[in-house]
């Protein structure tokens, strides 16, 4: 069943949205921050990161813009759209609810 892929995809989304809520970032910046913040417990490969970014962008939740970077390389910076901010709020609520539920079912407090 696709429960696990949902989980990964779903968590990736909320992770990305949360990071972009703090500041606009380019793809590599996001990947780096995730690794740093979780001490390497979560890690995004480019191959899994960009599909999620494009999907989010397509849904109008984030917006990417090319900006000049070091040397001749351009980088695409992503930021949260107003819709993205709302989505993030909802998802945060749901995760809290879910974790609460999980906690009650599994007996792990704040699972």
């Amino acid at each position: 069943m696709s429960g696990m892929s949902d989980l990964k995809k779903g968590s990736a989304e909320i992770v990305i949205l949360s990071l972009l809520d703090e500041a606009p970032l380019h793809g590599y910046g996001i990947a780096k921050l995730v690794t740093e913040r979780t001490d390497g417990a979560l890690k995004f490969h480019a191959a899994s990161l960009y599909p999620v970014l494009y999907r989010l962008e397509k849904r109008g939740v984030i917006r990417g813009e090319w900006e000049a970077g070091k040397g001749d390389r351009r980088r695409r910076h992503y930021r949260l759209t107003p819709k993205g901010k709302r989505t993030l709020e909802t998802q945060r609520g749901q995760v809290a609810e879910f974790i609460d539920a999980l906690g009650r079912l599994t007996g792990v407090p704040d699972a």
């Binding site: 069943m1 949902d6 968590s11 909320i14 879910f98």
Partner: peptide
């Protein structure tokens, strides 16, 4: 249960 998980994860 299955659906609730999917919902909470963004479906």
């Amino acid at each position: 249960g299955e659906r609730a998980v999917r919902r909470s994860l963004g479906a």
